Amino acid sequence: MSAVELEPSHDRIVIRLNRPEVRNAIDAETVAELHEACALLEQQPRIALITGSGGIFAAGADIRQLRERRRDDALRGINSGIFDRIRKLPMPVIALIDGYALGGGAELAYACDFRIGTPSVKIGNPEPGLGILAAAGASWRLAELVGEPLAKEILLAGRVLTAEEALGCRLLNDIVEPDELDAAGSALADRIARQAPQAVRLTKSVFHAPREAHPLIDDIAQAVLFETEDKYDRMTAFLERKDRKK
């Protein structure tokens, strides 16, 4: 890989966009390498942390490539496909955002489960100013994240949110200084890793299930977890701690 760097450990993988010379613009090579990273995470589910290099998350899609794309390229869903795959990864995904997250970079961040930023964050979707729309998830996902009125300001009127504005609408979970960004992501990953992995996986799946699938899917997921050793061991340990405090 060259456009994306992977830093794996036993319970997580850091995915670092590595095109700082073009502010980590998301091109076809980046998309292909993100698919490779997703394949690894689907085969061996782990927490993912997505970040950028050079003080930028991702300033958007690669405009030089985007300008040459035609109808059939749009119908292939090049960016929407990879962002949807990231959204559906088995374990949570954390975006660590420094500087610009615009266009496709913003849509990548929206596809993640958590977003931690720095004070320099600028996040939004300027696509209509370039004669296109935000077609890789923002046009429907953003309203779920921030509500319809603000989503329309961003998508239709070109509003770009500052870090404080993004935190205020909970698009960002937290703001930290740039030199604390990796540590903040690791701390959140640690909190997730302390939970039962299979319970986290099934909770994420149930959370994103269609409304009409509930409550049946909740009951089926719980039935699976009721049969796990991890459930028995964790509940036994909880009861033993409680008994010791008496």
Rank of each mutant, 00 (worst) to 15 (best):
Asn79Lys: 05
Lys245Tyr: 12
Phe238Thr: 15
Ala221Trp: 03
Ala223Thr: 07
Arg19Leu: 15
Ile13Cys: 12
Arg234Met: 12
Ile116Ser: 07
Arg70Asp: 14
Val200Ile: 07
Trp140Phe: 10
Ala163Cys: 02
Thr236Asp: 15
Val200Cys: 01
Pro178Trp: 06
Val31Pro: 04
Gly60Lys: 01
Ser53Asn: 05
Ala189Val: 05
Leu216Ser: 13
Pro20Asp: 11
Leu75Met: 15
Ser186Trp: 04
Arg141Ser: 14
Val121Lys: 05
Glu127Tyr: 05
Val224Ala: 13
Glu5Ile: 10
Ala193Trp: 02
Arg70Asn: 11
Asp98Met: 01
Lys122Met: 14
Asn79Leu: 13
Ala101Val: 00
Cys112Lys: 01
Gly52Ile: 00
Gly103His: 05
Gly105Gln: 04
Ala193Ser: 12
Pro178Cys: 07
Ala74Leu: 15
Arg69Trp: 14
Leu216Glu: 15
Gly129His: 05
Ala151Met: 00
Leu171Ile: 10
Ser139Ala: 13
Glu107His: 03
Ala39Leu: 09
Ala196Cys: 12
Arg141Cys: 09
Leu130Arg: 12
Glu29His: 04
Val146Gly: 13
Arg69Tyr: 09
Arg159Phe: 04
Pro197Arg: 03
Pro210Trp: 03
Asp11Arg: 13
Tyr110Trp: 11
Leu202Pro: 02
Ala106Leu: 08
Pro149Tyr: 10
Ala213Cys: 09
Gly52Asp: 01
Leu108Arg: 04
Asp84Leu: 07
Pro119Lys: 12
Arg70Gln: 14
Lys245Gln: 15
Arg201Trp: 00
Val146Asp: 12
Arg244Phe: 13
His10Phe: 14
Val224Thr: 11
Gly52Glu: 00
Arg70Leu: 13
Ala221His: 03
Leu40Ile: 11
Val121Glu: 04
Gln44Glu: 15
Gly99Glu: 01
Pro119Glu: 14
Val160Glu: 05
His208Ile: 08
Val121Ala: 08
Glu164Asp: 11
Val176Ser: 11
Glu5Arg: 12
Arg23Gln: 12
Val93Thr: 12
Pro90Ile: 08
Ile154Phe: 00
Ala39Ile: 04
Leu202Glu: 05
Leu155Tyr: 02
Phe83Met: 09
Ile13Gly: 06
Leu66Lys: 06
Leu75Glu: 15
Glu180Phe: 12
Glu240Lys: 06
Gly55Leu: 04
Ile15Glu: 06
Ala58Val: 00
Ile82Leu: 12
Ile154Pro: 00
Glu42Lys: 11
Cys38Trp: 02
Val200Asn: 01
Asp84Tyr: 04
Ile94Pro: 02
Ala143Thr: 06
Ala138Gln: 06
Gly77His: 03
Ser205Leu: 10
Asp11Leu: 12
Glu21Leu: 11
Pro119Tyr: 11
Leu150Met: 10
Ala59His: 02
Leu181Arg: 11
Leu172Pro: 06
Lys122Tyr: 10
Phe83Glu: 09
Val206Gly: 01
Arg170Trp: 05
Asp11Met: 10
His208Val: 08
Cys169Phe: 00
Asp243Pro: 02
Arg69His: 09
Ser120Pro: 01
Gly117Cys: 04
Leu188Asn: 03
Thr30Tyr: 00
Arg115Thr: 10
Ile192His: 06
Lys245Trp: 13
Ile82Lys: 07
Asp73Ala: 13
Leu161Thr: 02
Pro20Trp: 07
Ile192Trp: 07
Phe207Arg: 10
